[in-house]
């Protein structure tokens, strides 16, 4: 790690602290009935969800060898959401909701792999098209469930479906899981640098490819499921953050992984605060803000990729 990287990580840590302090200190200004103690779960949930989505984005981009890969765009969050929603509507407990979300995201990634890898080739167009269709399919299923669902809970479910941190389930369990995922991803970092260039290239340089892909797939699916369980489907964090961090720390995963986690967590805490400052007498789900930021960046990157081909 160079001196510049050291300074950058110090900056990211300061940004994380700043995001926490701003979110906790400004909350009573917006709503006098809320003290910082009431705000802490929301801020912790925001940091965990942002970190998890950024990390899931990094891992999916390696698995699919494409910097446009992201849990939301590819319909993976949609799969987790549909499964979690089904569990919620059946009145199951939070463990079952999280497990269902995990199963939904695993299924989505498996479908992507099956449909996008004929003869080992994964083109961007095919990947994105499959992801969009998958997301549309999950969206239709979610609408169907909402039509059938009980009306009184509909309002809150709709906000959750837009990606909202206002009513997070107690988020404390997410921090050790985020730490464990960071550890697992960081241990894989050197291998991921090889896998990103293709299975054969990685294998010939000494990587046990099948084992690595499986681990990467499980961790990315788990992170997406946990993020959805906490805050519903929040888009584009997994796209914006890794892309920005690649410009700042480079493509090496040993640096990219922790940098993306810190930046993703801080960004979502700050965007959640921004959404609350923007709409003071009501709710603006943070998922709406991330989409407003993410869509133009995604389109710009898609255009760049098309030009480079």
């Amino acid at each position: 790690m160079t001196r510049a990287h050291g300074l950058l990580f110090a900056g990211l840590l300061c940004l994380t602290l700043l995001a926490f302090m701003l979110a906790l200190l400004l909350a009573p200004v917006m709503d006098a009935s809320l003290g910082w103690q009431q705000q802490l779960p929301r801020v912790v949930a925001g940091f965990s969800v942002g970190g998890m989505l950024a990390l899931a984005g990094v891992l999916l981009q390696v698995l699919l060898r494409n910097p446009l890969a992201e849990p939301y765009v590819l319909g993976i969050s949609g799969g987790a959401t549909a499964a979690a929603l089904a569990a919620l509507m059946l009145g199951l407990g939070s463990v079952w909701v999280a497990s269902s979300a995990f199963a939904g995201s695993l299924l989505s990634v498996a479908v992507l792999f099956l449909l996008v890898s004929p003869a080992g080739r994964r083109s961007s167009d095919r990947l994105l098209l499959t992801g969009v269709v998958l997301a549309a399919g999950w969206g239709a299923l979610i609408s169907f469930m909402l039509v059938l669902g009980p009306e009184p809970s509909l309002g809150q479910l709709l906000f959750w479906l837009m990606g909202d941190l206002a009513h997070p389930v107690p988020p404390w369990w997410s921090l050790p899981l985020l730490g464990l995922s960071l550890g697992a991803a960081w241990v894989m970092a050197n291998s991921l640098d090889l896998l990103v260039h293709g299975d054969e290239q990685a294998a010939v340089l000494g990587v046990e490819v099948r084992r690595l892909r499986l681990l990467c797939y499980l961790v990315a699916s788990l992170l997406t499921a946990l993020a959805v369980t906490l805050a519903g489907p929040i888009g584009f964090i997994g796209l914006l953050v890794p892309q920005l961090m690649r410009y700042l720390v480079g493509a090496r995963h040993a640096l990219l992984i922790p940098a993306s986690l810190l930046a993703g967590g801080s960004l979502l805490v700050l965007l959640d605060l921004f959404s609350r400052l923007l709409v003071t007498d009501g709710w603006l789900p943070v998922g709406v803000v991330t989409a407003v930021l993410g869509v133009p960046v995604f389109l710009f990157m898609l255009r760049q990729q098309g030009g480079a081909r």
């Binding site: 910097p67 640098d193 990103v196 260039h197 293709g198 290239q201 690649r246 480079g250 493509a251 480079a308």
Partner: peptide, 11 residues
């Protein structure tokens, strides 16, 4: 081999 992934900016 010859399949560096040019989408990722490795030096």
């Amino acid at each position: 081999m010859q399949q560096a992934n040019l989408a990722f900016p490795y030096s």
